Computed example of a mutant assay.
Amino acid sequence: MQQYETVIILTPLLSVEAAKEVLTKFNKLMTDNGAEIVHEDNWGLKKLAYP
């Protein structure tokens, strides 16, 4: 089985609860289509190189 890595960048204007809801929906979408989530790592809020 091939393994893929995905990085999701969300707007920092979202609240913590809203961000968790988005990630939950994404995880459900992936698992409903046959994917297996092997590892999940939340990087938190990061400052990007551009606004």
Results as ranks from 00 to 15, higher is better:
2 Q>T: 04
2 Q>H: 08
3 Q>I: 15
3 Q>W: 06
4 Y>A: 14
4 Y>W: 08
4 Y>Q: 13
5 E>Q: 13
6 T>Y: 11
6 T>R: 08
6 T>G: 00
7 V>F: 08
7 V>M: 15
8 I>M: 14
8 I>T: 11
8 I>F: 15
8 I>V: 15
9 I>H: 00
9 I>T: 13
9 I>C: 13
9 I>G: 06
9 I>L: 15
10 L>W: 02
10 L>P: 01
10 L>N: 03
11 T>F: 04
11 T>E: 06
12 P>L: 05
12 P>A: 14
12 P>I: 03
13 L>D: 15
13 L>T: 15
13 L>P: 01
13 L>V: 08
14 L>T: 02
15 S>F: 03
15 S>G: 10
16 V>W: 02
17 E>D: 11
17 E>T: 11
18 A>E: 13
18 A>M: 06
18 A>P: 00
18 A>K: 15
18 A>R: 13
19 A>M: 01
20 K>D: 11
21 E>N: 10
21 E>S: 10
21 E>Q: 12
21 E>R: 12
22 V>W: 01
22 V>A: 10
22 V>L: 07
22 V>I: 12
23 L>M: 15
23 L>H: 04
23 L>I: 06
24 T>M: 06
24 T>L: 11
24 T>H: 10
24 T>P: 02
24 T>E: 14
24 T>K: 13
24 T>C: 01
25 K>N: 12
25 K>V: 09
25 K>E: 13
25 K>F: 05
26 F>G: 00
27 N>E: 14
27 N>T: 12
28 K>W: 03
29 L>Q: 07
30 M>H: 08
30 M>G: 01
30 M>R: 07
31 T>F: 04
31 T>M: 10
31 T>P: 00
32 D>L: 06
32 D>T: 06
32 D>Y: 03
33 N>P: 01
35 A>M: 13
36 E>S: 10
36 E>Y: 00
36 E>A: 08
37 I>Q: 04
37 I>R: 03
39 H>G: 03
39 H>W: 04
39 H>F: 09
40 E>W: 02
40 E>A: 10
41 D>P: 00
41 D>H: 09
41 D>L: 05
42 N>A: 09
42 N>T: 04
43 W>G: 00
43 W>F: 07
44 G>I: 05
44 G>E: 06
45 L>N: 08
45 L>R: 15
45 L>Y: 14
45 L>T: 09
46 K>N: 05
46 K>L: 13
46 K>I: 09
46 K>W: 05
47 K>G: 02
47 K>V: 12
48 L>W: 07
48 L>D: 00
49 A>Q: 05
49 A>W: 02
50 Y>E: 02
50 Y>K: 09
